[in-house]
Nucleic acid binder design. Sequence first.
DNA 1: ACTGCTTTTGAAAAATTTTTTCATTAAGCG
DNA 2: CGCTTAATGAAAAAATTTTTCAAAAGCAGT
Lengths: 140, 140
Amino acid sequence: MSWEERLSRAGWRITTPRRVVMQVLQRAGRPLSPQEIYMRGRRIHRSLGLVSVYRSLEVLERVGLVRRVHQEDRCDGYILASPGHHHILLCRRCGRTVEFPGAEDLSGLIAQVEQRTGFQVEDHLLELIGLCSPCQRSKS
Amino acid sequence: MSWEERLSRAGWRITTPRRVVMQVLQRAGRPLSPQEIYMRGRRIHRSLGLVSVYRSLEVLERVGLVRRVHQEDRCDGYILASPGHHHILLCRRCGRTVEFPGAEDLSGLIAQVEQRTGFQVEDHLLELIGLCSPCQRSKS
DNA sequence: ACTGCTTTTGAAAAATTTTTTCATTAAGCG
DNA sequence: CGCTTAATGAAAAAATTTTTCAAAAGCAGT
Ligand SMILES: [Mn+2]
Ligand SMILES: [Mn+2]
Ligand SMILES: [Zn+2]
Ligand SMILES: [Zn+2]
């Protein structure tokens, strides 16, 4: 199912700003901030407004089409999200980001933590950080 | 070893703002934003400046005495950090935050991902989100 | 305790980021 | 096509973070 279809079925309209944000993120392959999306987006859609980028990201994230990435220094970067439970792997050098499916190895850990703390775990945030192949080589 | 000693050994001075930030976080038990730390800190140290809160957090985080917490809606909350590799478990309702030691169950997953992506994984970010005991009960 | 050197502080200003407001535009549906 | 309502973009406002700089305070060595 296309992202347009997913967005539409969730009750949202397919608009130019939303299309532009998706297109920019598709081409990026690394997390982009609203500001960056805005600047690149304007080359596609001259009259794009920064506010619409913010608003688009909010909706697209809610629908699960886009994901925010947490980094040491910034947490305002967005990438395209594949459907279903995924985690991300990102290169600390060039920012390249790759998703990988859930691989739920955490159940043991979670059970253990629940036991010891009395918490009821509902969700988790997992990101792996490292160096992508190209950056391993060009390790100046 | 006390936090003062750890800070000092790392080459930093023990100052009033840093002491206040630590004290505020000690009493909090949940992530506090710089603004919140500032407001609470002023009750201890009348002339505390917001800038010093920002600067203190930067240093304390660098030394590993304090940790930034990533949440759905905000990533500007700080908690006290225990020494060594820990993860956090936080309540989505009241914000209560608990640390738990590394429990490195991730090595399998990491090896698998490294294999498939060519990345070299160096670090990770893991947070568990759920409901703490009190909030499970008062589930209005 | 006192001195001198250096880091750190707090106020103010500046820069950046995010949110709100509101008149206008344009999606989507018949 | 026309209607209805969601969505847009400009502008302003609010909130957050960083920079600047003179004054204060930490600390090492007397
Ligand atoms: Mn998972
Ligand atoms: Mn770990
Ligand atoms: Zn974050
Ligand atoms: Zn890379």
